[in-house]
Design a protein around this nucleic acid. Sequence first.
DNA 1: AAAAAAG
Length: 692
Amino acid sequence: MPKNKKPAGGRPARNFDPKFAADRKPRWNRDDRDQRQGGSREGGFNRAGTGRDDRGERRPFNRDERGGRSFDRDNRGGSGRDNRGGFDRSERGGYTRDDRGGFRGDRDNRGGFSRDNRGGFNREDRGERRFDGERGGFRGDRDNRGGFSRDNRGGFNREDRGERRFDGNRGGFNRDDRAPRRFDDNRGERRPFDRDNRGGFNRDDRAPRRFDDNRGPRRFEDRGERRFDKRDDNRFEKRDDNRFDNRFDKREDNREERAPREQNAGERAWQERRDAAPQRTAAHEERIDVVHERLESEAVAAEEVEGQTFADLGLGDNIVRALAGMGADKPFPIQAATAGPIIEGKDVLGRGRTGSGKTIAFGAPLVEALLRARKGKERAYGRSPQALILAPTRELALQIDRTVQLLARSVGLFTTQVYGGVPQGKQVGALKKGVDIVIGTPGRIQDLERQGKLDLSQIQIAVLDEADHMCELGFLEPVQEILRLTKADGQKLLFSATLDREVSALVDEFLKDPQVYEVAGEDQDSGTIDHQVFVVDQRSKRDVLEQLADRDGRTIIFSRTRAFADQLVEQFEDNGLRAIALHGDLNQAKRTRNIERFSKGNIQVLVATDVAARGIHVDDVDLVVQADAPDEYKTYMHRAGRTGRAGRSGRVVTLIPRNRRRRMSELLDRAEIDAPFHEVQPGDERIEELTR
DNA sequence: AAAAAAG
């Protein structure tokens, strides 16, 4: 009998907090939802939560959500999996893409590359469609970059990485192979092209563990040192040179070769803005190398700022009260470390381990800084935002807003979320009225900016949460483009638990005199998480997972693919376990709803892809299971970091097949995590131990 | 493989 089989009357939520007792509901029903639409009550993933919007505007949300459902999975009812995948995909693909075909001039250029060409309507479709639609450089809005656009590069890089992996035992990536740690002599020679290389193929890499006694304070270059190993790899140099050529030199050619196309005013304006955006110059190159040197020597420990109050850090009364209201009575170390410099207007890199309070660490001083800058001026209708917070997932953007919005409102500033998957209307409406802080994901921000509905030119403070992730393939370019549209002398803040050299792509171009802040001696392993690895026979993997899921207490199970996440949920449910999925195949309404259901305590098992790996905070997740081992140590750290937050304890179990043991221990080494390996079979005592 | 735009 499953332990968490459908609770009769709704078990008490684990993150029950007396402060919000009136707000709690044991489970979601229609009425709850409707009621929820109405007010600005607390809610959300954690107790810092608040309503969706602070304006008391009318909410199209509910209606849209329900309307959207005709295209989502709910409607499929009892239909089987196969049916489901095919039906949904084709409908969605056809509906969204083709119906809008005539809407943009660039679509016309695709000519024969229409839906029919795109082949079948199964899941794999997605990749192919991308290929046809985007790689070929058919899109007008990409044409400046010629055929060697982001997408090209993406394909190239990814394959590269794949090959490498299978190069025997990771080829040149062996620890023993690694070049010695210090590369200072080489640094001066670094070309800007390097940074893409680094991002592309060396993500896993990290400097070897230090064995000398004084481990902290850690310096910026402590991780990712090996990036330099491949500096002179011809293939990469060549590729990047190509890219560079195409991007800057061939721009004009390309434009002329293409058939002329109608541009609307918004697009024209956007292109002008973009062309006017500052580009890298030789002088700039010299400066950044210098900055980079200094960056590495200026990492500071935060110990000396511990013990201060928020007020001591320079935050005003209202903000301090708002912080107290969300349970932050005194600053966590990372918050104490970064607040001062941020208020002073410095460019800051913040590294604090998962769950150490990074959102407040940038959010509170950001609000304070905006407030001080605004002093004396009045809040004009339709003003452009002065701060921007970028996050890699919509859920994270939403969550950040929950916290930052409370802080902002306490001093009369407004925030709005700008992310995809939901209708633009509400976001545009808010922007029209004027907001001070925009929080969102890159795609929609670019979209609205290009439409002329979001003005980035007044952004004085730009924050990148999960900054290293935002420098990865597919994120980096949009992020760069966005940052180039913000104030040239604006302040930049980069935060992540795994802040490493990967961010130098941005640091070099956008940060002035940056300093790294972190808490000395605080690394992931000094935390409160207990790690272990289960070596499991492939055939019994699902059984083991099911037994692990059958427990009291919140559990997140990470799967590598969306399909497997769905399969697991289905399997669990077939066997009477309540579980819920979270991944990018779900529409946004469902994603939001699912994570809410999970954090409300109604359903205790969340099966997610890495969409939930970073930043997402749910109270009292006490077990993280990695159904598939991650490829990167950083992914491991972030997934594991969903538990053991704010000093609480948590456990992490990673399932691997026998042949992955070596790779796994190398990964754990990089993450500086000690975890015992156990051979485990279904029904094993080790599993039992985790379920009580 | 995943994520990130589509009134």
